[in-house]
Amino acid sequence: MFKRLMMVALLVIAPLSAATAADQTNPYKLMDEAAQKTFDRLKNEQPQIRANPDYLRTIVDQELLPYVQVKYAGALVLGQYYKSATPAQREAYFAAFREYLKQAYGQALAMYHGQTYQIAPEQPLGDKTIVPIRVTIIDPNGRPPVRLDFQWRKNSQTGNWQAYDMIAEGVSMITTKQNEWGTLLRTKGIDGLTAQLKSISQQKITLEEKK
């Protein structure tokens, strides 16, 4: 169930391209415009997507990853294993993690069937560096609404905000991946996880038929 919630949630996290980005210092504006741009692209490019579902990787690479804190999220997933990894191991892992996100997020976007969304009203940021933004996803086919909290983090150097995690039903996506990959990290280390991520990233994206 959580895996499905995570995939549905990713439908609204794909941010804007650099040329049309919203105010990078306001995570609420980023979330709002990102959702609108993403849904528009999914709707307008269905012919290309249906002809070649792996085209979704391109959308992810162009529109999402430049505005997601990939390395920060990847380091959180590694936890204690990050500090013990060599620079070469980290570089290989982050490259594999990025390719994994292209496949995983692309597969999530393949679930698009006309969903709509509501974003919580903007709250004062103050001096906060981590801000959760509640998004409610509404399914046109009558499924119950899904309420999610996207975690946005302020870059201490640039002042810009980027998304790095999502919490559904009190469970963090980062925590879920830590639990899912924990045994592999304990037995085969970061190299074993890197190899698995490379394998997963090679899987073809498949479209979910409308139910």
Score class of each variant (00 low, 15 high):
Val8Lys: 07
Gln69Val: 07
Asn155Lys: 12
Tyr164Cys: 11
Gly114Met: 02
Phe39Trp: 11
Tyr81Lys: 02
Glu209Val: 11
Lys43Phe: 13
Ile49Arg: 08
Ala35Gln: 02
Pro15Ser: 03
Gly114Trp: 05
Asn141Met: 09
Gly189Pro: 08
Pro47Tyr: 01
Asp191Ile: 02
Gly106Glu: 00
Pro140Ile: 07
Leu16Glu: 00
Leu197Thr: 13
Gln202Val: 05
Met6Ser: 13
Tyr55Lys: 06
Thr129Arg: 06
Val146Glu: 05
Gly189Asp: 05
Ile138Lys: 13
Val135Pro: 06
Ala168Ser: 03
Glu209Cys: 15
Ala195Cys: 10
Met111Ser: 09
Ala96Phe: 10
Gln48His: 00
Ser84Ile: 04
Gly126Pro: 11
Met31Val: 02
Tyr112Thr: 05
Gln107Asp: 00
Lys29Ser: 08
Gln115Thr: 11
Tyr28Ile: 12
Lys211Leu: 14
Thr183His: 14
Glu209Leu: 14
Pro87Phe: 15
Arg50Gly: 02
Tyr93Trp: 15
Lys198Cys: 12
Ile200Phe: 08
Gln115Glu: 05
Tyr67Ser: 12
Asp32Cys: 02
Arg186Phe: 11
Arg4Lys: 05
Gln89Trp: 00
Leu5Gly: 06
Ser17Phe: 15
Thr20Tyr: 07
Glu99Ala: 13
Gln118Leu: 11
Pro121His: 13
Leu30Ile: 02
Val68Cys: 00
Lys102Glu: 15
Leu16Trp: 03
Trp181Gly: 10
Thr58Trp: 07
Val146His: 10
Gly74Phe: 11
Ile119Pro: 06
Ile13Lys: 07
Asp23Pro: 05
Arg4Met: 09
Ala51Val: 14
Thr175Trp: 02
Tyr93Cys: 11
Ser172Val: 08
Ala110Lys: 00
Ile174Ser: 02
Gln123Trp: 12
Glu45Val: 03
Lys128Ile: 10
Lys210Asn: 11
Leu185Met: 03
Thr187Cys: 07
Tyr93Met: 03
Ala92Lys: 03
Asp61Tyr: 01
Pro124Lys: 06
Arg57Asn: 00
Pro121Ala: 07
Gln46Thr: 13
Gln115Pro: 09
Lys188Val: 07
Ala21Val: 08
Thr86Gln: 02
Leu10Gly: 07
Asn141His: 01
Phe2Gln: 02
Lys102Tyr: 01
Tyr81Phe: 11
Met31Pro: 08
Ile167Cys: 13
Lys211Cys: 15
Pro121Tyr: 02
Gln103Tyr: 02
Thr176Lys: 07
Ile174Thr: 09
Lys71Asp: 14
Ala195Asn: 02
Ala35Ile: 05
Gly170Lys: 04
Arg98Glu: 06
Asp191Cys: 06
Glu91Cys: 05
Ile59Arg: 08
Gln69Phe: 15
Pro145Asn: 11
Leu78Asp: 09
Leu16Met: 03
Asn179Leu: 14
Arg147Lys: 02
Lys204Tyr: 07
Lys102Cys: 13
Asp54Pro: 04
Glu91Met: 09
Leu10Ser: 09
Gln69Glu: 13
Asp54Phe: 01
Leu30Gln: 05
Tyr81Arg: 03
Lys198Pro: 08
Trp152Val: 12
Leu193Asn: 06
Thr58Cys: 03
Ile200Glu: 11
Ala120Cys: 09
Ala85His: 06
Pro15Val: 13
Met31Arg: 03
Ala92Glu: 01
Asp127Ile: 13
Leu207Gly: 10
Tyr100Cys: 03
Pro144Lys: 11
Gln62Ser: 04
Thr176Arg: 06
Phe39Ser: 01
Ala34Pro: 03
Gly159Ile: 00
Phe97Glu: 08
Lys188Pro: 09
Met173Ile: 14
Ile205Asn: 15
Glu169Ser: 10
Gln62Tyr: 01
Gly170Ser: 08
Asp40Thr: 15
Gly142Met: 14
Gln178Tyr: 00
Lys43Gly: 05
Ile130Gln: 15
Ile200Gln: 14
Leu101Thr: 12
Arg57Gln: 13
Glu208Pro: 05
Pro87Ser: 05
Gln157Ala: 09
Pro27Lys: 11
Asp61Glu: 06
Ala85Asn: 15
Gln107Met: 08
Ala21Glu: 08
Gln48Ser: 00
Lys177Tyr: 12
Arg147His: 00
Gln48Glu: 12
Trp152Lys: 02
Leu125His: 09
Asn141Ala: 11
Thr86Lys: 04
Thr25Lys: 10
Tyr72Pro: 03
Leu148Lys: 13
Gly182Lys: 14
Met166Pro: 05
Asp40His: 10
Ile167Val: 11
Lys198Met: 15
Gln157Phe: 06
Ala75Met: 05
Leu193Met: 13
Pro15Leu: 15
Asn141Val: 06
Ile49Gln: 15
Ala85Gly: 08
Thr175Ala: 15
Val135Gln: 12
Lys43Asn: 07
Gln196Trp: 00
Arg98Gln: 03
Val135Gly: 10
Gln151His: 04
Ala95Met: 04
Glu45Trp: 11
Ala88Trp: 12
Ala168Gln: 06
His113Ser: 12
Lys177Asn: 05
Asp32Phe: 01
Ala108Cys: 14
Asn160Gly: 08
Glu45Leu: 07
Glu180Ser: 10
Ile200Lys: 12
Pro47Asn: 12
Asp54Glu: 10
Ala108Phe: 08
Gly182Asp: 05
Leu76Thr: 03
Leu16Gly: 01
Gln62Phe: 01
Thr183Pro: 10
Thr194Val: 08
Arg153Leu: 06
Pro27Trp: 14
Ala35Leu: 11
Gly142Ile: 01
Gln36Trp: 14
Ile133Asp: 15
Glu209Tyr: 12
Lys37Asn: 09
Met7Gly: 04
Thr58Gln: 14
Lys128Val: 03
Pro145Tyr: 12
Lys71Phe: 10
Trp181Cys: 15
Gln46Arg: 08
Ala35Val: 09
Arg90Ser: 12
Leu42Asp: 00
Lys37Tyr: 09
Ala18Ile: 00
Ser84Val: 04
Gln203Pro: 04
Leu197Lys: 12
Arg41Trp: 03
Glu169Lys: 14
Gln123Leu: 11
Thr194Pro: 02
Gln103Lys: 13
Arg186Thr: 13
Leu30Ala: 12
Ile174Ala: 13
Gln178Met: 00
Ile205Ala: 14
Gln115Asp: 13
Glu99Ile: 10
Ala51Leu: 10
Asp191Ser: 11
Pro124Glu: 03
Gly114Asp: 14
Asn155Ala: 01
Leu64Ala: 11
Met6Arg: 02
Lys210Ile: 10
Glu99Gly: 08
Thr158Cys: 14
Arg147Asp: 15
Val68Gln: 00
Gly189Val: 09
Gly182Ile: 15
Thr175Cys: 13
Ala51His: 07
Ala163Met: 07
Lys188Asp: 01
Met31Leu: 02
Ser172Ala: 13
Leu76Val: 06
Lys198Ser: 10
Phe2Ala: 06
Ala22Ser: 04
Tyr164Ile: 04
Lys37Cys: 02
Ala75Arg: 06
Glu169Met: 07
Lys83Asn: 02
Ala163Asn: 07
Trp152Met: 09
Ile133Trp: 12
Ser199Lys: 04
Ser17Asp: 09
Val77His: 00
Leu101Gly: 01
Pro87Ala: 12
Ala92Tyr: 07
Asn44Cys: 00
Arg134Lys: 00
Ile167Ser: 02
Leu148Trp: 13
Glu122Ile: 06
Glu45Phe: 10
Lys128Tyr: 15
Ala73Glu: 12
Arg147Pro: 09
